[in-house]
């Protein structure tokens, strides 16, 4: 699997992401600057990592979503390419219109830097196949604007099409209001595109992929996508 990590000015999680992808695939991902206008030939997965691209000016991810590399990412996605956006990467994907909804300021107005628990809502995706439905795993989160919002119609569609990938939950797997620290609509932490090949999520699975990091809770995501794209 050939993974490409996009680097925008202000991105700061690209190395963590590279470690996770390297561990799961045995291959080092390429890192591509936002001013490029094409993806390397043979790209199987495009990853938009976390950070504060363009200083979060105007809206989180707004500038990055209009950067020179993004038309190539859009073409890649429209042709059925796999895309993963984490944290700021999720914000960029919604700003680019590749995923529905938007990420608003956390309801508490506080930047949240802590571990949270995510409940796996669907295993029908190349990113979540290694988990069991309803399984809960730990993931660090670090964001000021992670409060997922979408209108009623979009929410109904996401639910009907089984496109909610993860919900904020307690360690025991209950999607309570207390577990929903940023105020996200319906506890949504991550969603899939219509073709299930684009995943956007706020917490950071790439930061728990090795016992030295304190756990391997996030590893199944990278193993899932590595397996799905192994033959590619």
């Amino acid at each position: 699997m050939n993974a490409v990590i996009l680097l925008f000015p202000g991105t700061n999680r690209e190395r963590d992401m590279a470690i996770a992808l390297h561990k799961a695939t045995g291959r080092k991902p390429a890192i591509l600057f936002h001013q490029e206008t094409s993806l390397p030939a043979g790209t199987d997965l495009v990853v938009l990592p976390g950070g504060f691209s363009h200083g979060d000016y105007l809206r989180c991810g707004a500038m990055a979503a209009r950067s020179p590399i993004m038309p190539a990412v859009r073409d890649f996605a429209l042709k059925g390419g796999h895309v993963l956006g984490v944290c700021n990467g999720f914000q960029i994907l919604t700003e680019a219109g590749l995923l529905p909804g938007a990420l608003l300021r956390n309801a508490s107005l506080r930047f949240l830097s802590m571990d949270c628990h995510l409940r796996v809502e669907t295993t029908r995706s190349p990113f979540t196949a290694r988990w069991q439905k309803g399984e809960t795993f730990r993931a660090p989160m670090a964001h000021g604007d992670g409060n997922y919002f979408c209108d009623d119609e979009t929410l109904a569609r996401l639910q009907a099409e089984d496109r909610v990938a993860f919900r904020y939950a307690t360690a025991r797997g209950e999607a309570t209001a207390e577990a929903n620290r940023n105020g996200a609509r319906d506890n949504i932490a991550g969603i899939l595109s219509e073709n299930r090949r684009i995943l956007g999520m706020m917490p950071h699975p790439e930061d728990l992929v090795d016992p030295l990091m304190g756990g391997t809770d996030g590893l199944p995501l990278f193993e899932s996508i590595a397996e799905a794209l192994a033959t590619a």
């Binding site: 105007l58 809206r59 707004a62 209009r66 919604t94 700003e95 938007a102 919002f149 979408c150």
Partner: peptide, 9 residues
């Protein structure tokens, strides 16, 4: 429409 506002929100 293209940049200054996000018409989703």
């Amino acid at each position: 429409r293209k940049l200054l506002a996000n018409t989703v929100i």
